[in-house]
Design a binder for these strands. Sequence first.
DNA 1: TAAATTTTTGTATGTGCGTTCAGTTTTTTG
DNA 2: CAAAAAACTGAACGCACATACAAAAATTTA
Lengths: 203, 203
Amino acid sequence: MTKISFRTRIEDLRRRELIEAAHRVFMQHGLGGMTTKRICEEAGMSPGILSYYFKGKEDVLFAMVRLNNRLLMEAVASGLAQATTRWGRLEAIIAGNFPEGLFEPNIANAWLSVCAASATNQRYARLQRIFYARLKSNLASVFRDVLPDARFKQIALALGTMIDGLWLRRATGEALTPQDSTALVLSVAVALLTEAERAELAA
Amino acid sequence: MTKISFRTRIEDLRRRELIEAAHRVFMQHGLGGMTTKRICEEAGMSPGILSYYFKGKEDVLFAMVRLNNRLLMEAVASGLAQATTRWGRLEAIIAGNFPEGLFEPNIANAWLSVCAASATNQRYARLQRIFYARLKSNLASVFRDVLPDARFKQIALALGTMIDGLWLRRATGEALTPQDSTALVLSVAVALLTEAERAELAA
DNA sequence: TAAATTTTTGTATGTGCGTTCAGTTTTTTG
DNA sequence: CAAAAAACTGAACGCACATACAAAAATTTA
């Protein structure tokens, strides 16, 4: 009993340390510059430890991406919980996609690399799909019963695309704040909707 | 005389063949899967040839990216030349950013990889900057003297971001045609402008 | 055609990587 | 406190890669 709980605690700790080290190495050296040696060094451990706690390098990478995705999704979920009107939920979804402290060049770049790698990596592609499905379903919860299907599709695509584009721009170092970005996406949402639709969403 | 001109012709030919081979390998195996051996094999040459015509692998990659960028820029330029009104120029710029036959998942993915690599590769970053500067300057030529500076900045950012976002989505395999994408960006442009502004642009 | 030059080949070399594993240290157990 | 188990080490291995290079083939020159 004690044995298992301790073992689990250490294991989880080390795994998390390695994931976070991997994340830091990734930020500094890019996807190509991530070596097991560097990751372990960054974590203050010996090179062999990685195989002890993970199946291999690919495993650490995947865990890292999954963790990041979870953080982003949670940011949206916590914002959504507090909103009362449909429009409030829309604001929460958009703002949640530009979390303070996470909407930074290196993190954006990490996400970009994963997008690119999705083309040749099934596991990444799956994470990606889950992420987009969640965004779309969140947006659907805002516009359901207010917009006809075709229009919803157009607006959801426009907003989702905008969010992606802003992250991409952020990855190149463009000086965008979470506030700027949220405001820009919202302004597009406002522009694309009729006054009547906006009123209905605000109710 | 004959000697030099022949030599140059062969040299340019081989370089181009290698660049195109590199491009095909890139499409199929991603940035990480590009090896000199594969490139040369794809070009139907022996592995050593690469060092003969290029400084190294990095050199081929850079040439490849530069060529792609040039193709995209030329697509825009040729469209721009035919437009007569400001609005026509706007349409040309946007449509030119989704060229038929180039707006495809593998090409989009290539571009994405380069974006990601720009973070740790100075030369890529420079190409990127040139590309964005060109887009911005093209958009400026449309809105100059019609919109105040702050508004131009907002709209240019919105449209540029949208274009980037659509390419990113295309990279993930989303079923977007050049026509869909152009229409979506234009619809956002229409929505963001006032009726008076649109009239002035159409003149 | 013979010499000279350019072009191409395929192997060799060195480097850096992920992973393994026998052994060592640390922690837990009884 | 010993015995056992877990956590960890770091050197060693094999592999894939970029690049270099000497030799060969093809082409041009005179």
